[in-house]
Amino acid sequence: MSISPIMAKVAEKLQRKDIPQVSPGDTVRVQVKIKEGDKERVQAFEGVVIAKKGGPQASLTVRKISFGQGVERIFPLNSKVIDKIEHVRSSRVRRAKLFYLRGLKGKSARLREIES
């Protein structure tokens, strides 16, 4: 079903424009705002983008290995929690969802970097 022109306009208004284009396989550093009491600070979460969802409810799934433990975080792209997203490097991947990385570790979980 196609989206109605009104909804497209509303979605356009709610969209955050300052998020850079990233694709699956990219390594990104997401700066997350964290509230502690009434103070606010920024924490970084760096990892590989293993999935991306589009549309008005777009999100990124970022995976990293923390102390030998796989950690995944899903970031809604329009959320105010995200301070900014930095692009670290791109890798060559052949599919849109990299869920196969969950089953791999160490050397086999590496991705080939794109020379640019």
């Binding site: 989206i3 109605s4 009104i6 909804m7 509303v10 979605a11 705002k33 008005p56 329009n78 929690v81």
Partner: peptide, 18 residues
């Protein structure tokens, strides 16, 4: 018209009907 979601001032997601 339809439904979507937005983030309020506290950063929480709210389901909305347009």
């Amino acid at each position: 018209v339809g439904m979507t979601q937005l983030f309020d001032d506290r950063g929480e997601v709210r389901p909305i009907t347009v």
